[in-house]
Design a protein around this nucleic acid. Structure first.
Length: 276
DNA sequence: AGACCCCTGGAC
DNA sequence: GTCCAGGGGTCT
C-alpha cells in the first residue's frame, strides 16, 4: 500500500539520516531478495557512500553514485527504517545495511512482495518497469495529463493505476482522486470531457499533496521512516468506507471491482457516464 | 481484459 | 477453515 505519498514521506525521512553515510556491512540478507545476477549484492554495496535518497513513482532509491543505485519497491507491506547497528529491530526483516555511524537501515516486509535490487544506470534503463514509467503526477501539467489520457482505451481508474500512464498512484489515491473529481471509476477515459480531465488533474494533485503533508496513509502496515503512522487515512472520503454515508451527499457509498481492485465510490456524487 | 500467482495475517 | 487485502509479473 505504500503509494507515492508514503514512499515520498519515507524518502524525506531517510534523506537526512542516510546522505553521505558509508555502507560498512550487510549483516543480514534474506535469500528471497537475491535475484539472478544479484548474488554479489554485498560486494557491490560495502564501501559505497550514499549520495542521496530519491523517489520515482513508487520506487525509492539510494543513490550511490551517478551510475549506481539501490532500488526498493515496498509493494504491499514493505517498510524501511533505522535501527542501532548490530540488532534485528523487528520480525520480517530481510535486509540490514550497517552504516559508518553505528546505525543501520533495515528493510522489513511481512508478505515478502517487496523488492530490493542494485542497478547500474544502464541496467535501470533496461528495466521496462522503470524505463516505461509514466510522468510524475505532481510534475505533470494539466495539458500534458489531458493529452496522455486522450484517445486511451480503458476505464479511467485502470489508467490511473497503470504505472505507464502515470507513476505512483495505487488503489487508495485512485479512488480518492476520482471522488474529488466527481468521476465514476468505471467511466471510459474516452468519454471524459477536457474540463473533466482538468478537474481530475487538479483533484489528483490536491490529494497527493495533502497526503504527503499528512505523512501518508496508515491502513495497516505503513509507517514513516521514523516508525510513525501517517494520518491521511482520517481524511479518506471513499477508500475503505463501503456502505457508509457519503460525507458530501450522505448517500450510501458503493463497492465494485475495477481493474481487479476493490473500488469505493459515491453513486450520487460520481454518476456513471455512457461511452460516447 | 481478466485470471492467477507471489505471501502473510486479520476478519469472519 | 475460507476469504480478503493489492502491486506487478505472467500467461491466456
Amino acid at each position: 500500500m505504500p503509494e507515492l505519498p508514503e514512499v515520498e514521506t519515507i524518502a524525506q525521512g531517510l534523506r537526512p539520516l542516510l546522505t553521505h553515510r558509508t555502507i560498512t556491512g550487510i549483516p543480514h540478507l534474506a535469500p528471497h531478495l537475491v535475484r539472478q545476477g544479484q548474488t554479489s549484492l554485498t560486494e557491490k554495496l560495502i564501501g559505497q557512500q550514499i549520495q542521496d535518497v530519491s523517489r520515482r513513482g513508487k520506487l525509492l532509491f539510494l543513490d550511490l553514485s551517478p551510475t549506481e543505485r539501490i532500488a526498493f519497491h515496498l509493494r504491499m507491506t514493505g517498510r524501511l527504517g533505522m535501527a542501532p547497528a548490530g540488532q534485528l529491530p523487528a520480525a520480517h526483516v530481510h535486509l540490514l545495511i550497517n552504516l559508518d555511524n553505528q546505525s543501520a537501515l533495515y528493510f522489513q516486509d511481512q508478505r515478502k512482495f517487496g523488492t530490493c535490487r542494485h542497478f547500474t544506470e544502464q541496467e535501470l534503463n533496461a528495466w521496462p518497469f522503470y524505463s516505461r514509467m509514466g510522468p510524475e503526477p505532481l510534475s505533470i501539467g494539466a495539458e500534458e495529463f489531458s493529452e496522455r489520457l486522450a484517445g486511451k482505451r480503458g476505464r479511467i481508474k485502470a489508467l490511473l493505476l497503470n504505472q505507464e500512464v502515470i507513476a505512483g498512484i495505487g488503489n487508495i489515491y485512485a479512488d480518492e482522486s476520482l471522488f474529488r473529481a466527481a468521476i465514476h471509476p468505471a467511466t471510459p477515459a474516452a468519454a471524459l470531457s477536457r474540463s473533466r480531465i482538468t478537474k481530475l488533474h487538479h483533484a489528483m494533485q490536491d490529494v497527493l499533496r495533502d497526503a504527503i503533508t499528512a505523512g501518508g496513509s496508515s491502513i495497516r502496515d505503513y509507517r514513516t521512516a521514523a516508525g510513525l503512522v501517517g494520518t491521511f487515512q482520517n481524511a479518506f472520503q471513499v477508500y475503505g468506507r463501503k456502505h457508509q454515508p457519503c460525507l458530501r451527499c450522505a448517500e450510501a457509498l458503493r463497492i465494485t471491482k475495477v481493474a481487479g481492485r476493490t473500488t469505493c465510490y459515491c453513486p450520487g456524487c460520481q454518476p456513471e457516464i455512457e461511452a460516447g
